[in-house]
């Protein structure tokens, strides 16, 4: 990551924090805010500089997507970034309007988008973890913070482990994609599978630790958990990614298992 990218990540993070303050902006507000997103150049972040974009290289592109995942907003920033990237690849002129759904993707584009979602999920997982840690430190019952109960500590330790595993799987798939070799498809499938599983555990643990307040629409936790429940099955369901790994491993068979692990 170079200095310019890290400045962009910081600026984007600040903007996203502002944007996430409003959960249901009206139309004027929505357009006004989308202007701010445009001004920062986010819709064209993954487009080459020759085509008027920021031209982030793959690792940085995915880091920006992770930052977006940390702050769920009502704005389809990641979708728009991906859509413009694909348009630019196809030689179409990118534009800055918000795109909420990606259609007619080629196999390679679907893979790229699937990894984008995976990395976005790891961002959301980080937020769920820190939100939950904060909550159990603040909330007192039986005369002490929930965090003082060992059973709560252990649930959160497991959550932290899942979040770390998800991040590791995502990082690895991003570096395989950046390297551009054959191992990328398998690494993306592994990321989708492992991160998807972490999402299930994280959502249920976070809700359990928050109690009823986390189930209320007003609370931000549900923005993250409902997003994860949607994202983990987009651009190929989690089940389809998992089966793809299974098919590849079983096709090579018993004696290739370990070499496949070290090549993955």
């Amino acid at each position: 990551m170079d200095d310019i990218s890290s400045l962009l990540f910081d600026a984007a993070e600040r903007l996203l924090i502002d944007l996430s303050a409003e959960s249901a902006p009206d139309e004027t507000q929505y357009l006004l805010n989308w202007r701010k997103i445009e001004e920062m150049g986010l819709p064209l972040a993954l487009v080459d500089t020759e085509r008027g974009g920021i031209g982030l290289e793959p690792r940085d592109a995915f880091e920006l997507i992770r930052v977006c995942g940390r702050h769920v907003t009502p704005f389809p920033i990641v979708e728009t970034m991906l859509s413009n990237r694909f348009a630019a690849d196809a030689g179409t002129k990118p534009n800055c309007d918000a795109v909420s759904e990606l259609r007619d993707l080629s196999e390679r584009q679907r893979e790229f988008a699937a990894l984008g979602r995976a990395v976005q999920m790891t961002g959301a997982l980080e937020t769920i973890l820190s939100m939950t840690v904060e909550h159990v430190q603040d909330r007192c019952q039986f005369g002490r913070p929930l965090a003082k109960f060992q059973v709560i500590q252990h649930s959160l330790a497991r959550l932290a482990g899942e979040v770390a595993a998800a991040a590791a799987a995502g990082d690895h798939a991003v570096s395989k994609l950046a390297e551009g070799g054959d191992a990328s498809l398998m690494a993306t499938a592994i990321a989708r599978t492992r991160i998807g599983e972490a999402c299930s555990m994280a959502a249920s643990t976070a809700h359990q630790m928050h109690g009823a307040i986390g189930y209320a629409r007003e609370h931000r936790l549900q923005l993250y958990t409902t997003a994860l429940w949607k994202w983990r099955d987009e651009f190929g369901s989690q089940a389809s990614w998992t089966r793809l790994i299974g098919r590849m491993v079983l096709a090579k068979g018993r004696d290739s298992l370990w070499p496949m692990v070290t090549a993955a």
Binding site: A168, A169, I190, T193
Partner: peptide
Amino acid sequence: CTAAQTAIGRLFAHLVTLRHM
């Protein structure tokens, strides 16, 4: 067998991720 593919796919994803970590 899809159940086998699913199970092996999941175990493999876990194993590879553990190894990265």
